[in-house]
Computed example of a mutant assay.
Amino acid sequence: MFEWLSDGITHLKRHRITSSEKAILENKFIYYQRLNQNHKKEFVTKLELVITRKAFVPRGALSEVTTEMKILIGATIVMVTFGWNDLRLPHFKKILIYPSTYYSTISKQYHRGEVNPRHGIIVLSWSCFLNGIADQKDGVNLGIHEVAHALKLENQIYYNDESEFFNPEIYRSFQLLATEEIHKIKTGNLTVFRSNAGIDDDEFFAVALETFFEKPHEFFEYNPELYGTLVRLMRQDPRVWVNV
């Protein structure tokens, strides 16, 4: 029997994660590997819903979207949103995947990824995405970065059922602490964050989440107040999953 889900307009056949797809998680997604069995079941359930409700679209020279692409990109969305029971980023219905960096006719530059809130699209370079998950301790992860942008935007979108999921008081605390860190970066002080975190508050949030998930112990040692605020904002603590 198939289970059908409604997105309010159409009925979707729910994707069921197979044993071979679970093997991709076990072999290539460290966050999933370190979850206990109950959390793994929860993760898989959420991943099924993400894959069911998102359209994964090949772009450029990419001829098709593989199962591995769907699993690993979907898993990144689940990881970032794991602290919430029912958060699926519904505004962002399409994920466009290029084989490598791609040229934007709008910005006249090559990009590794971007988020387009007007069209509800997340765009990723697959080679850059893979580089991000290959080294999960360097604080550079394209998937986390772009999903973080989408998460921040989704919180501000008021015409769907998933807006304002950030606790307002905690988010204000984060913004105040983030402003201090951005100032440090812009004035040349050494921080745990890479330099482009100082561009603006959007970039800081994205880089902060990369650091949060990939270098949680170093982040905590650098600024325990900011780290603790992100733990409360994101409703999870990656130090539980990541070994020193």
Rank of each mutant, 00 (worst) to 15 (best):
H15T: 10
L230Q: 04
T211W: 13
K215V: 08
I122L: 15
K215A: 04
I17Y: 06
R239D: 05
D7Y: 13
L47M: 01
H217I: 11
N189W: 05
F92D: 09
I71F: 06
I97G: 03
I157L: 15
D202T: 11
S6T: 13
V123T: 15
G198Y: 09
Y98H: 15
K22R: 11
R235Q: 04
I51F: 01
I71W: 08
F43P: 04
G132A: 04
A134F: 06
T81L: 10
T10P: 05
Y103T: 09
S6A: 04
E48A: 09
L153M: 13
K28C: 07
G60E: 10
P117T: 10
W4N: 14
F82E: 02
G74M: 01
P238M: 07
E218F: 06
R53M: 15
Q33I: 12
G74D: 04
L62A: 06
A150K: 01
Y171I: 03
F220T: 01
E203I: 04
D138M: 08
S107A: 12
P90T: 03
G8H: 12
L25F: 09
K93T: 14
E64D: 02
Y98T: 12
L49E: 14
Q236I: 07
I71R: 00
G60V: 14
P216W: 14
G8F: 10
C128G: 07
D201I: 14
F213C: 10
E203F: 12
E26G: 03
Q156D: 15
A150G: 00
V65F: 03
V140M: 10
H145C: 11
E164I: 04
R235K: 11
N85S: 11
N155P: 03
N38K: 05
F205H: 09
S125F: 02
N160Y: 10
N160F: 07
F205G: 07
T81C: 09
P90Q: 02
F165H: 00
T76R: 05
G74Y: 06
E169M: 06
I122S: 05
F174E: 00
K184W: 01
Y227S: 00
T52Y: 06
E164S: 13
A23W: 07
F193P: 03
E68G: 10
S107G: 08
V192M: 02
N27W: 08
R235G: 01
S6V: 04
Y158R: 08
